[in-house]
């Protein structure tokens, strides 16, 4: 559908806003609805839109296989890494309160990092899954 001028222009215009919105959802999750998971899905939906309009191979240039694979692993490792950090700092696994001087600060920090990990993994997973489906030959 890449020859459709209207679609191309509108989506080119929209996609940056989708990413900004995803980041907003990621960081705003503490105060309103949203969080890592939703942000990841919205982020990946930007890629999906791009792939729908401009084709899979162009999208693969933006999100190469090695990158999504690394992001998949980094996200979960970040999450469990925060947990291990809590263990090393003297708490139990996934205890955030020990991460900073004050328990609530620690909680904030921990939740921030953990949500980031979730976001990265989910975005990478959704992109991987979609591109694997869309990139498969009949």
């Amino acid at each position: 559908m890449s020859h459709l001028v209207i679609l191309r222009i509108v989506s080119k215009f929209l996609i940056p806003f989708i990413f900004i919105f995803a980041l907003y959802v990621q960081w705003h999750g503490d105060f309103g609805p949203g969080g890592g998971f939703q942000a990841g899905v919205i982020f990946s939906s930007g890629f999906i839109l791009y792939a729908l309009i401009f084709g899979v191979s162009l999208t693969r240039q933006a999100a190469p296989a090695w990158l999504t694979r690394a992001a998949l692993a980094i996200g979960v490792l970040l999450y469990s890494g925060v947990g291990v950090a809590g263990m090393v700092m003297g708490g139990n696994f996934l205890s955030y309160s020990v991460l900073a001087d004050e328990p609530t600060h620690g909680q904030h920090l921990g939740i921030l990092l953990v949500e980031l990990g979730v976001g990265i993994t989910v975005a990478a997973a959704m992109i991987t899954i979609f591109l694997t489906f869309a990139g498969k030959d009949r």
Binding site: L4, I6, L7, V10, S11, F13, L14
Partner: peptide, 8 residues
């Protein structure tokens, strides 16, 4: 923005 595009 999107509705007309989608309909199009």
């Amino acid at each position: 923005f999107t509705s007309p595009t989608a309909t199009h």
